[in-house]
Amino acid sequence: MALINAETGKTYKVKEINTRDEEMNSFLFRLGCYAGEPITLISKKKKSCIVAIKDGRYNLDELLSEAIQVC
């Protein structure tokens, strides 16, 4: 499912990332956000969410959190 629909406070595994933007994909990769890696949804709002990737916290907008598929 898309990250935006995930449950707050739970840790998921990234299944697939498809932003249709190569540079964005590889940027996320460098932060440690790529298929097989854990990602935790810390909190979410209508248009954005906060996630924990590795040991950092990030705020993502709606578009990005829709492009990240987790399981």
Binding site: F27, L28, I50, R57, L60, D61
Partner: peptide
Amino acid sequence: RKSFFIIEL
């Protein structure tokens, strides 16, 4: 156009 936003907190 898709304008992604990501910022480290």
